[in-house]
Design a protein around this nucleic acid. Structure first.
Lengths: 227, 227
DNA sequence: GCGCACGCTGACCGAGCGGTCAAACCGACT
DNA sequence: AGTCGGTTTGACCGCTCGGTCAGCGTGCGC
C-alpha cells in the first residue's frame, strides 16, 4: 500500500466528493473533478466506490448518521417537553451550521433520480419516527395535527434557510448565512416552536374541555378550495 | 410555415419540456428526449429556444408568472387580514395542486447551477415583496419576526409537501398527494397560519403594553447554541 | 412567376462523460 | 529471493450529449 495511512485515500475521495457535490450537485461534478480535487487517480474512485452514485450515497450516509445522532442526543434530557423541543431545534441548526453542504446534498438527491429514493427512505424514516415519538405527548397520532406534519414544517423551515441562502442574499440585501442573520433565523425558529406548541396545547385543551367537538380540526370553516 | 397553428410548435416543445424536466430534472432529460416527446425535430428546439437552459427558464417563467398572479388575486379582498392570509395559503395550495411539477422544477433550479440564480431572483423578489406588504400590519420590518421569515416558513411548508411526496409515500404508508392526504395537509397549514397569527398578535400586544422591553424577541432566554 | 423569409430537416461534430483493464508498484511475510 | 495481495496507474472505450449547419419545402407579397 502506498498511502501513509490506512483508509486515507478513500477518505480523501470522500471529502473531495463532499465538497464538490455539495456545491454543484451530482450532475454538476464529474468523477475526474473529484479525483483531481482529492489528488488521486480517477480509477481509484471506482476502486473504492463502485460507481459515482454509490460515492454520492456514501457522502450522504455520513451526514445522515451524524445528524440523527445529534438530534437524539439533544433530546435525551430530563427537562420539560417544550424545552427539549427547543433544544432539538438548536441541535438541528447547530448541525447544519457546522455542515452547510448537507441540506443542498439532501435537496439535490430528493429532486434527482428516483433511484435514490430507497436510500433516502432508509435514512429519513428513523428521523420521522423519532420526531413522532418526541411529539407523542402533545400531538395526536393522525389528522392535521399529527407529528409528521410538524416534521415537514420544521425540517423545511430549517433546511430552506440554507438551500435558499445564496439565492436570497441579494434580495434580502445581506447574506442569510452571516452569523447575525443566522442568529436571527434561530430566534425566529424558536418563536415558531413556541407558537406551534401554544397552539397545540390550546387545541388539546379545547378538545378535552368540550368533548362534544371530537377532533381538533383547524378551527376555521373550510373555504372554497377550487375556483 | 408547416404547423397548423402559429406558435404551435414552440408550445409543443414547451409542454414536452415541462413534463420531462418536472419529472427528471434538468440533467435527467436530453434535448433529444424533449424533441421526441414533442414529436418534433431536435434542431427545432434550438431554433425556438437558444439553448437547453433557456428552454428550462422558459418553462419556469410561465409558472412563476401564473403563480404570482394567483397569489395576488387571492389577496385582493375586503376581508380581515387573517382571513386573507388563509385565502393566500389556499391559493398557494390550489396552484400547486393544479401544477404539481412546479415545486420540483423550482427546487431543482435552486439546488442546481448557480447560473440560474439571477433568473430565480428576478422571479422570487416580487413574491417576497408581496408577502412583506401583506404582512406589513402584523409583522415588524426587521428582526426574528420579520415577514421574510414567514415567507420562508410557509413556502417551505407548502413546497416540501410536494417535493418530498414520492419519498414520503412508503414511510407514511399512504400517498401524500392523494386527495384525502392533501386535504389533511391543507388543514394543517391553516392551523399553522392560525398559530403564527395568534403568536404574532400576542407578541405585539406584549410589546405595546410593556414598552420597557422594546423589540418583541422570541420571548425565551437564549440557550447554549454551540458545544 | 419569382424570390424571399420563415419553418423545418437530418446528418454531423467535438467534447466530456462514467466506467474498464492490464499492467506496474510495493510492503509484508516466508 | 521470491511471491503474494492490496493499491495505484494511465491509456482506453463506447456512448451520449448539446449544439451546428447547409440545405430543403412552401406559402405569401410583389
Amino acid at each position: 500500500m502506498k498511502s501513509s495511512e490506512r483508509g486515507e485515500t478513500a477518505t480523501q475521495i470522500l471529502e473531495a466528493a463532499d465538497e464538490l457535490f455539495g456545491d454543484r450537485g451530482l450532475d454538476g461534478v464529474s468523477v475526474a473533478d473529484i479525483a483531481a480535487r482529492a489528488g488521486v487517480n480517477k480509477a481509484l474512485v471506482f476502486y473504492y466506490f463502485a460507481s459515482k452514485e454509490r460515492l454520492f450515497e456514501a457522502v450522504l450516509a455520513r451526514y445522515y448518521e451524524a445528524h440523527r445522532e445529534a438530534l437524539e442526543a439533544s433530546f435525551r434530557s430530563e427537562a420539560p417537553l417544550e424545552e427539549r423541543l427547543h433544544a432539538l431545534v438548536d441541535a438541528y441548526l447547530d448541525f447544519i451550521e457546522r455542515h452547510r453542504r448537507y441540506p443542498r446534498l439532501v435537496q439535490a438527491m430528493v429532486v434527482g433520480d428516483p433511484a435514490f429514493h430507497p436510500f433516502i427512505q432508509k435514512n429519513l424514516e428513523p428521523m420521522l419516527r423519532f420526531t413522532e415519538a418526541a411529539l407523542a405527548d402533545v400531538a395526536p397520532a393522525s389528522g392535521p395535527l399529527a407529528a409528521r406534519h410538524f416534521f415537514l414544517d420544521l425540517s423545511g423551515a430549517v433546511i430552506n434557510t440554507f438551500t435558499y441562502a445564496s439565492v436570497l442574499a441579494p434580495i434580502w440585501g445581506r447574506d442569510p448565512l452571516a452569523p447575525a442573520a443566522l442568529a436571527e433565523r434561530r430566534a425566529h425558529l424558536h418563536f415558531l416552536v413556541d407558537a406551534l406548541f401554544a397552539a397545540l396545547e390550546r387545541s388539546s385543551r379545547a378538545a378535552t374541555t368540550t368533548p362534544a367537538r371530537p377532533a381538533p380540526r383547524s378551527g376555521r370553516p373550510r373555504r372554497a378550495a377550487r375556483r
